[in-house]
Structures are given as structure tokens and as C-alpha cells.
Design a protein around this nucleic acid. Sequence first.
DNA 1: AACATATATGAAATATAATTCATATGAAGT
DNA 2: ACTTCATATGAATTATATTTCATATATGTT
Lengths: 99, 99
Amino acid sequence: MKYNTYHFFFRNLANPIKIKIISALKEKQSSVNELVNELKIEQSKLSHALASLRCCNIVEVKQKGKQRIYFLNKETILPILKIIDKHENKFCKNCPMRK
Amino acid sequence: MKYNTYHFFFRNLANPIKIKIISALKEKQSSVNELVNELKIEQSKLSHALASLRCCNIVEVKQKGKQRIYFLNKETILPILKIIDKHENKFCKNCPMRK
DNA sequence: AACATATATGAAATATAATTCATATGAAGT
DNA sequence: ACTTCATATGAATTATATTTCATATATGTT
């Protein structure tokens, strides 16, 4: 196949909306509707994004009545984001592309 | 601005060609021509990819005569790839999308 | 079983990124 | 200063990903 785990995984992290979802779920688990309201992202867009994140086991989901509660698989994501933040501080401070 | 460090950084890692370059440079530093020959990727494609990697300080470059020698900034990349490999083993073993 | 609410899905439209190709630049040798 | 080799760059094309919108499904309620 043409693509691999790196591709699928990092594509999620390259996407601002998916990063927003991850950030929100870092704080607390949420239903789709809660995310819609908190992030002001429309429902189907969110569902598509969540499906993609779920597919890589970046988030997981559990049913609660009619709602589906999404929560973050922190084990992988948190260390990665920490490494990038460090990288940014160390190497990308005066990069002209940013901001 | 619309995009951020996560976007620029992870977009590189989501791209199979750029991952190939990173893997090659993990072994040893190389000139563009060496990469062309080893990876069988055409020169301008490589140059574009290298520019993008350089932009995020994933690789660096030094001049040596007419050649430009690219080398990996291992500090950030190696830990990240290790984390993903672990993630893949733990969570993506029987994912139907892969292979 | 009909209905409402919550979420997911598919396909078309749109946006974004990667590739290609022609050409530019830059260093080194003559 | 001209030529060659090594690499970079820009712009048009093509490929891929995201968004949108209409609709489907699933759960719980009456």
C-alpha cells in the first residue's frame, strides 16, 4: 500500500481542527455535541475528524445513552506534543513563516 | 495566521518521501545527489522536500564545495519516531487500513 | 411503532499539497 | 568571463485531503 502508519498518524496532527479536538480532550472527555459547542465546529466536520483520530487510536469512544463520549489516548500524544513544543522553542523561534 | 508549528512540522512526517529522506539521513549525512541515487527520487522533488524539512529544522545543511550536505537534526525526530513505532505496535496491529 | 435527539456516513465541491518541468542560481575549474 | 556540475526555485499541473450538505443509523422515549 502507498501509505503507512506515519502518514495516517501525522496527518491528524498536521490538521488544526484535529489539534483543537486533541487539546479539548486533553482537558476532559466530551460528547460530540459538547465539542460542537466548545469548539464552534460543525457537527459533521467534527464527526469526520473524530473518525480519522479514532482510526489511529489517538482518541477512543464510549457510548453513554444516545451520546458518544470521546476521550484522548494520552499515552502517545502527550509526549509527542511536548517534544514538538520544545523543538519549536529551541529551533523555530525566529522562523519567518510563523505568525 | 491560519497554520502553526504543528501543521508545518507534522505535514513533513505525514509524507512518505520526507520520511524516506529522514530514514536515509538517520544512517548518514548525504548530498542531494547521493539521495537522488539512493532513494531514486528525482532531484527537484528532493529539493522541494528538503526545503520543507529544512524550514522546520528537521534537517540542516552545510556547503561542501559545490555540494550541499544534508544532515538530520536527530534530537527531535528520533524520539518521535520511536514513540510512533511503539504506538503502532500497541494500538494499530490489526487495523484493517494498513497493508 | 412512531418520534426525537445524537452522531455517522457518502459523495460532490472545494481547498491544499505534491509533482513536474523548465529555468535560475551558485560554486569551482579553466 | 565562460563552462560545468550541483542544487534550488517558480509556476502550472495533478493528486490528495477537507469541507459541505443531504441523508442514514442508532439510541432512547412516548
